[in-house]
């Protein structure tokens, strides 16, 4: 079994001649990024719904990867426009769904892992990273607290549209945000996003009490 042979990709092999000072990296960051990508492509395999194609970064992911999540302004402006263009706004121009259903979606961390069934609806994973409702003390801190979100921002049509768009594609507003693009990725549908908008903005939602 020859699983252990390291094949150094040709693209990197030519640069291996660069003299590396002992104790330090012997290649540039870009070369290690390429080596990392080649290693991932060689050493990962599809499982369940997590197909091999997921390993390929899309245009936005590539830009964030290549620039340590901080692409140069020109590229950033171009990409931000493209991300905003992906947002499909509801045809009926209504943004507020049912906050109670939104709370359930926010609670669910299901979806898209190789152990999730592809046919089951994904959850919003919201509490994994955000504080949201006052009655849920088990919340993550990867993202900012959203407690009182609507109370401090108001419930204007613009705010509703922004919140909907942000959940649909967070990268339209913060290019290399850690937040997934739930609508763009097909994780949440229009109704689900509306319900989440209601959870955040509806004056009756506990978030705003």
């Amino acid at each position: 079994m020859k699983n252990y042979i390291v094949t150094i990709p040709a693209a990197v092999a030519v640069t291996a001649l660069l003299a590396g000072c002992a104790g330090g990296p012997s290649r540039s960051e870009a070369e290690y990024r390429q080596l990392a990508l080649d290693t991932i492509k060689r050493d990962f395999q599809a499982k369940g719904q997590a197909k091999y194609e997921r390993l390929t970064a899309d245009e936005l992911q590539q830009a964030c990867n290549a620039h340590a999540n901080n692409p140069p302004p020109e590229l950033a402006a171009k990409l931000a426009g493209a991300q905003l263009a992906t947002v499909k706004l509801p045809a009926d121009d209504k943004y507020l769904g049912d906050w109670k259903s939104g709370e359930k979606i926010a609670q669910s961390g299901r979806g898209f892992t190789w152990s999730d069934k592809a046919e089951n609806p994904a959850g919003g994973n919201c509490y994994n990273c955000h504080q949201i409702g006052p009655n849920e003390s088990s919340f993550g801190t990867v993202g900012p607290s959203l407690l009182g979100y609507g109370k401090t921002r108001g419930n204007s049509p613009e705010m509703q549209k922004y919140t909907y768009s942000k959940i649909f594609n967070a990268k339209a507003f913060n290019l290399c945000s850690e937040m997934p693009r739930f609508g763009h990725a097909g994780a949440l549908n229009e109704k689900q996003i509306k319900d989440l908008v209601a959870l955040l903005l509806d004056p009756a939602s506990p978030v705003n009490k």
């Binding site: 290690y32 080596l35 990392a36 991932i40 970064a57 990867n65 693009r181 994780a187």
Partner: peptide, 17 residues
């Protein structure tokens, strides 16, 4: 080590993680 470091920063997949 350096390749592992770059792998840890590699974003891809449906959630960009």
């Amino acid at each position: 080590y350096e390749t592992g470091k770059a792998m840890a920063a590699y974003r891809a997949g449906p959630y960009d993680f």
